[in-house]
Design a protein around this nucleic acid. Structure first.
Lengths: 251, 251
DNA sequence: ATTGATTTTGAAAGTTTTTGACTGGTTATG
DNA sequence: CATAACCAGTCAAAAACTTTCAAAATCAAT
């Protein structure tokens, strides 16, 4: 097997599952730990994935900053099916002629493959999303702004200004915390500002979050729960169903 | 078996499977390793496939936007050494405090690894460049605009508008044609417009092109030769040296 | 057909790169 | 704090590569 083929297989695995453990890759490639380690080091250096303890993660993931860094093995299984279900449902909401904002993040990224082949225009502040959307044949715009290297997203004052020039029919926003008292929250100030600007210029906003994000408050406030509809896999706390508009895709 | 037949068999195999190992091809063609090696070297030089350790890979960048394919494609790049030399010199021109526009394209992309560790801010309309620059620790902005899928660049009216808000100290522009009569040209109208806007808002513009671009005119006009300095590997036609400002990095 | 020049081929020698095992140190976990 | 998982570094063996050279094939005339 060629080195390049190993690289491809690793990248494919990591990108599809969001992450992969060292042991998994050794079995898959039928090669030694040393070699996989070296491959990961190379791919990490090239920025094609992110090496973490125990394996590697996709380079394009943003939803994973709840202060603690999770173990990869855990992360690999963690809520992937739920995210796919959420993404699938969210994608189905898009209609002919829509002008849609797609937020950065893994869940919104997953939406792209499920999008219907329609005449829809997108705006997104995530590089990967922009490229994927364009490759799928949609018309895609990006706002101006500064690059935030950790999340590969566009943020900042210029970004807000760009977004204010648009009026979206729908927007799909990822959030890291949902709470009855403070509403939607996210860990990063600059990203929160972008999300706020988007919501202010959108007819109907959808907030995407798996069940683990409920009853959780992160650093920066985005909006109250009344600002849009929540799309999630399921909610334990029934108060959310009465106090906010919630769609549970796995119940 | 005819040499040409071997060539076509190799290409067929490589293109269908995406790659092939040396051993595979030896068996398939029933010939010696030396011969297959020579064939691969030839086909690689002609750009019909990309030779890698252990075999060869298809030269066609497929529909997937992975950095690996970019890496592979890079090896197949025409005039690679020349482009590296040009990029290296161009990078050395950047000084502390500069506010630089970096155009989309392979030569400007190569500049990034040679950039000095200085306090410099960049604006670029190419996704890949933006990410690479940010990873290297520079402050990076992108203009707003529409995604052009073929070149992975940002273009369009919004892009021009964004660029007009800046005043660059230096800009590095890639061009596809340089001619004494019409000046700098490029094949794409939308990209030409962006380049023009950049030049209009730059104190000192540099035009990057290898020697193959001289005495060549492509579809859309960008600017006359007097608009900036040309950085190239070498020029055959000495008229350019007298009529324009030219730096030859390989002479 | 034969001769000599030219090109192509396969084998061999020597060099470089990659690989997998092993070492000992570090980090998580119960 | 003990144990297991993980990781960086080292090293020798294996694989792949480059260069060189002579034999074989091809060609181009006589």
């Amino acid at each position: 097997m060629l080195t390049e083929d190993r690289y491809s297989t690793i990248l494919e695995t990591v990108n599809i599952n969001g992450s992969a453990t060292l042991a998994e890759l050794c079995t898959l490639l039928d090669t030694s730990e040393s070699t996989v380690r070296r491959d990961l080091a190379y791919l990490d250096e090239k920025g094609m994935l992110v090496k973490v303890r125990g394996g590697a993660m996709s380079a394009h993931s943003t939803d994973n900053f709840t202060a603690l860094e999770r173990d990869v093995a855990e992360k690999a299984l963690l809520f992937n099916d739920e995210k796919v279900a959420i993404a699938k449902y969210a994608a189905s909401l898009i209609e002919e002629g829509d002008f849609v904002f797609l937020d950065a993040g893994t869940t919104t990224e997953k939406m792209i493959e499920f999008l219907p082949e329609k005449n829809v225009t997108f705006v997104t502040n995530a590089f990967v999303h922009a490229m994927k959307l364009a490759k799928r044949g949609f018309r895609v715009f990006v706002p101006a702004g500064e690059i935030k290297v950790t999340t590969e997203a566009i943020v900042g004052a210029d970004c807000i200004k760009s977004i204010e020039e648009y009026n979206f029919t729908k927007s799909f926003i990822g959030v890291n915390g949902i709470s009855l008292s403070v509403g939607f929250t996210t860990p990063d100030k600059t990203e929160a500002e972008v999300k706020r600007a988007v919501i202010a210029n959108t007819r109907k906003s959808y907030f995407l979050a798996d069940h683990s994000k409920f009853d959780k408050i992160t650093a920066v406030n985005i909006a109250p729960l009344t600002e849009g509809k929540i799309i999630t896999d399921k909610v334990e706390n029934k108060k959310y169903v009465t106090e906010a508009s919630v769609k549970e895709v796995m119940r």
